[in-house]
Write a protein that binds this DNA or RNA. Sequence first.
DNA 1: TACCTTTGTGAGTGATTACTCACTTTTATG
DNA 2: CATAAAAGTGAGTAATCACTCACAAAGGTA
Lengths: 184, 184
Amino acid sequence: MTNKEQILQTALALFAEQGYDRTPTSQIAREAGVSEGLIFRHFGSKDALLAAIIQLGLSQIAESMQGYTGQAAPHGAIAEHIARSFALVRAHETFWRLVQKARFQPAVRQTAAAQIEEVNRFIVGQLTAHFQQAGSANPQLEALHLFALIDGVTIHYLDNPAEYPLDAMQQFLIQKYSDGNNMG
Amino acid sequence: MTNKEQILQTALALFAEQGYDRTPTSQIAREAGVSEGLIFRHFGSKDALLAAIIQLGLSQIAESMQGYTGQAAPHGAIAEHIARSFALVRAHETFWRLVQKARFQPAVRQTAAAQIEEVNRFIVGQLTAHFQQAGSANPQLEALHLFALIDGVTIHYLDNPAEYPLDAMQQFLIQKYSDGNNMG
DNA sequence: TACCTTTGTGAGTGATTACTCACTTTTATG
DNA sequence: CATAAAAGTGAGTAATCACTCACAAAGGTA
């Protein structure tokens, strides 16, 4: 692993654990085993370092979303969305913890807000289409509802991964949605 | 309003808007119209100021929760919980924005975590009882599910209060739960 | 080898910040 | 009124932090 990659990885871990504002660049350098100056040679500023982390994380996620055709039956598409969402959270737990932190830090948001918001809009749009295709009476609200639900479960899980029953919750939700209760 | 109250109110607004770490005590003092030293005379430290804000907010909320007997019919109790939750968010929007921020800032959490977590546990317990009384097949998961849902909707609303359809979502959820779909 | 570019260092710097303290003013109490 | 306690001030301080810079090492290319 190059020093640059080492910096990215160390900074991600520290930002996710301590928060952006509480993580000095000196600590990143120390734990990454490089000099502090190197961070600024590679990324220019602490803000730009965060932006690079977000961009890298999103691109990795986009990569693992390849092959998500969503061409299954309406019910199946929604179940698949739920399963994929939680799979992403499980696979990129640290990154999501950073994103959830960043969401509520205005100065941090400026860096990442546009990218994340675009992803969110895409997801809600896709969900709306699924619910519409499934004949839901109110696909828009249904999509916002599921989106909020997944976000809420994700946050509660990240709050306490060791104890939160994510597997059970995932099965619970998938069953709920495969009953057709939400297809009104 | 006393100077002490003025400090609390100003700090709440600034913490909620900018975040705790991004808000210097000098700014709080300036906007509250007092000297910086007075903050420390009254509260001792910036951390203690935050703790006082959280405690005040929670006590106000506990006060407005008085009279919430939850003695209605099972379905009614859940609908009432949903309505009351969003009413609280609407009435204490700034405070909730601070709480959502604090949730992801470890150093800030130490101050407020115990109190907030206790409230959360109480809510989940109460919801579980409601679902149990309603004959749900899995009251525990059902309670966690509704709790996450309300949290998710709250966060999305706080993200963009001007555009989020909170009224519609509230009616949507209440109708969903009065159908008995979740009573298995 | 000679030369250039990239990578890497670490001591230094100016700005910011939470907090202190000696002091003054106001308020309460006998 | 006298006195003490509480409220209030603002200049000062030590520490921290993001960032700079002069320089060195390493790597590629002719």
